[in-house]
Design a protein around this nucleic acid. Structure first.
Length: 258
DNA sequence: AAAGATAACAACCGCCAATGC
DNA sequence: TGCATTGGCGGTTGTTATCTT
């Protein structure tokens, strides 16, 4: 037996929404909310639409505070850098762009930004393969997002909180980078440097903090999650911001970056 | 001016994880 | 514990607008 359809395909309307349908949906949701059940909503609202279609219409077009129109240069940059890091996680990218929907960003990427990007970045995010479904939630819960601006290992990596870059790391590809595996990025290590959003910086060979910056003086010594957590703790770095990175190590032993 | 090509964007489809029974 | 249902997501398609020849 196959999966039951979410609605009766024969009786629901498809295609573009009319202004009347928009008004009905908007009025119903503003008055009653979604009641946590999109499937039942169209019937209650007097719409001959699939519940999924109603949800999509509301989320992408009708709900308040949706931003339509041109993307700013800042938004362009953020989308590009996030895509280069995490790939086509449109909902996560959209969460960093207030007022924008995942569908909007996806369309914008496919029609415009993709053409602007270098082929390697546009087609193959450097580290997206290190994110799997199991830790997506960690990513979503993190207030910090990472992006690598260069396709080769060991160059500039920026971390964003919402749309604000909070810090940029620079690393060198070094034979002493103990945690480098499969060509992924390592932020522990000698000769690393960091510049934070307030202009302060910290460089090289020391365990240091500057805003959310953490550089370990000894890349060889941090082999366990607990050690890393301890390091974060003793340097008084917000654990909320860094939990994701710690958990990343725990679940994906191929990617270590701080 | 017309026809074809391309771009932009709205909407649909199918898969999967979460949830409730 | 297993199954059915739902919500959410990303990929894809369809339609309309705009551009080019």
């Amino acid at each position: 037996m196959g999966r039951a359809p979410c609605c009766d395909k024969a009786s629901v309307k498809k295609g573009p929404w009319s202004p009347e349908e928009d008004a009905k949906l908007k009025e119903y949701i503003e008055k009653n909310g979604t009641c946590g059940n999109w499937i039942a909503l169209p019937l209650k609202a007097g719409l001959r639409r699939c519940g999924k279609s109603c949800r999509l219409r509301w989320l992408n077009y009708l709900r308040p505070n949706i931003k339509h129109g041109e993307f700013s240069d800042d938004e362009d940059r953020l989308i590009c850098t996030l895509f280069s890091t995490i790939g086509s996680r449109w909902s996560i990218i959209a969460a960093q762009l207030p007022g924008r929907t995942d569908n909007d960003i996806k369309n914008y990427w496919n029609t415009k930004l993709k053409k602007k990007m270098p082929i390697g970045i546009a087609q193959s995010p450097l580290i997206s393969s290190s994110y799997n479904n199991n830790n997506n939630s960690l990513l979503q819960n993190s207030s910090i997002m990472a992006s690598q601006n260069n396709s080769s290992l060991g160059n500039n990596i920026s971390y964003y909180s919402n749309t604000t870059p909070v810090m940029t790391f620079s690393t060198l590809t070094s034979p002493n980078l103990a945690h480098s595996r499969k060509g992924n990025v390592v932020m522990f290590g000698e000769r690393a440097s960091c510049t934070s959003s307030n202009g302060s910086s910290c460089t090289t060979n020391r365990a240091a903090t500057n805003d959310n910056c953490l550089i370990s003086e000894n890349p060889l010594d941090y082999n366990s999650i607990e050690e890393i957590k301890q390091l974060i703790s003793t340097n008084n770095i917000s654990s909320n911001n860094l939990n994701f990175f710690v958990d990343e190590i725990k679940t994906e032993d191929t990617l270590l970056y701080y």
